[in-house]
Design a protein around this nucleic acid. Sequence first.
DNA 1: CTGAAAGCGCTTACAG
DNA 2: CTGAAAGCGCTTACAG
Lengths: 338, 338
Amino acid sequence: MVKVSIKDIAKLSGVSAATVSRTLSKPSLVSKSTRKKVMKAVDETGYKPNRFGASLRTQKSNNVVVVMPDITNQVNAAIIRAIENEATKAGYSVLLGDTQNNIERDSYYGDMVTSGQADGILVFTPRIPFTINKDKPLREQLPPMVNSCEEIDSEYVHKVVIDNQLGAVKAMQHLLELGHTKIAAVKGPSMTPSTKARLDGYKQALIEAGIEVDNRFIITGDYGPESGFQAMEKLLRLKERPTAVFCFSDDMAIGAMNALREYDYDVPGDVSVIGFDDITYASLMSPKLTTIRQPLDQMGTQCMQILLKLMNGNKDVEKYVELPTELIVRQSTGPLVS
Amino acid sequence: MVKVSIKDIAKLSGVSAATVSRTLSKPSLVSKSTRKKVMKAVDETGYKPNRFGASLRTQKSNNVVVVMPDITNQVNAAIIRAIENEATKAGYSVLLGDTQNNIERDSYYGDMVTSGQADGILVFTPRIPFTINKDKPLREQLPPMVNSCEEIDSEYVHKVVIDNQLGAVKAMQHLLELGHTKIAAVKGPSMTPSTKARLDGYKQALIEAGIEVDNRFIITGDYGPESGFQAMEKLLRLKERPTAVFCFSDDMAIGAMNALREYDYDVPGDVSVIGFDDITYASLMSPKLTTIRQPLDQMGTQCMQILLKLMNGNKDVEKYVELPTELIVRQSTGPLVS
DNA sequence: CTGAAAGCGCTTACAG
DNA sequence: CTGAAAGCGCTTACAG
């Protein structure tokens, strides 16, 4: 690969580098005839302007970093696809920051903004991924940044969220309406804000229905299918078993259904299962999974749109966008059989 | 966010920019006392070297682009996670190139290498994603590049592959051994090399077993679940129905199983279904999906390792790495019931 | 062990 | 409409 620079094109077409640059980025400033000469040289050589040269000069990278715990996760994958789509439209490239749930890797990606390698950052973990000087106000230290999925605990951060607590209440109301009273919860890691909020919703719904919260019915998983399987095994060992299980992710619900099948329980005949997310595979399970849908596509799109505004120095950008969840009733939940 | 440059650190610590640079990248060249002064200023300001400045000077971006048809796909997601992992270890960042099956977007990502924005490229589509000058030998025009999943038709391209044809033969042999003779194929898009090879394997196995290839038994999908569903519907309309279906992806197999359930067929009682890939959800289906496993993790890791060598200007790098597939027998296939 | 200087590839205000 | 010049932030060969 032979690298060709703006100077080569300038020489080849007999104009200055400045004119080459103008031809490529602001062609209206250049006469038709020189434009033609320049474009000929560009086409012949396959010249592409070096973005680092341009970025160094303009102080803009046209990159965006996305920090996510795990790209393999369907929820994250759906969101990032929407982001990528929106970013490309606006001329931005996406730097992938898969932290693999490794907190130290947060700052590795966060530094990309600090070091000018990216103009903005999208954060799907509950932490600000760069070092903050505690002596100075946070507001002044924040680059263009939007947070989603797991809320960062700061009012200065722009967010696109769903009402996790309300989503959980919807799931519970569905199970309660079906007559269930012994309803277990398979939650995510205790420190995740999404799990905290959904657990609040779980408890709120029970209390409002006049049902006491039974801590043996609350099992902790890690949002992955295997942990849902194990959580379900624990619940099945209980002397008094739940008749319905609210899993805080579809993956855990899928794992739970696998455990139930393994031990010959019928879903929803013996136990109803409801998930959270509505990933593609939810509707491909047997029985098809009832769940609370998150508008993943919209979340990604909105995040990127807000970030775009922030990077453009736009004033009055939405600080807090809340998107609706929706109960999707399928086959994995059914009336209590007594 | 206040940007701080190397000059600021130089001034703050009373040394030259050169010394600051050395302190950060080759500390052994600097005396302990100046090192301390410099690091103090660095820590106080939170200075991170601007990578564009460095890249422009060193002519290295430390970026790698990954061109993939769809990041939402579990196969791609698993591969990219492995890539990201390997890349980060070596100090490279990953630029995500999700083409969304849009051929024009290929070159958008390919140009990132041409324009110096990335030092190498990983291509999971069957096309070289940048313009090639047909008058010059291809070899001289290729940047560090590794291809996988969908083979590019050129011997100059470094590849990490599986033997798709052999994988298909394994799937077919399994079905044949179970006594099936009426075996349908749900293939991917006709122009994809993976589908061509797997179709060859399908036909080869049939012919070797003395069974005639029946074109009504070959349905084209797009590797996604919905297309598997529709393909199965078509097969069920046939007067003489297949008793087993070999789907060229797990997603299509999952779709096919959904169609079978929808129309009250038992899997594998009425129809056996086998997939290809072994994505996470394959073993979470009911019945659990029998499939041909691709070593996705290994594929990603190997791709990146080879690219790393290529970018380091390493000589004698593997041109062609073939990884093994494996038949994973689970519950969706069973003996022919007559 | 350290500094001054050059230069990577671009863009843009300025002058004509 | 075009060119010469400066400068973005870094690194490194050279000199001391």
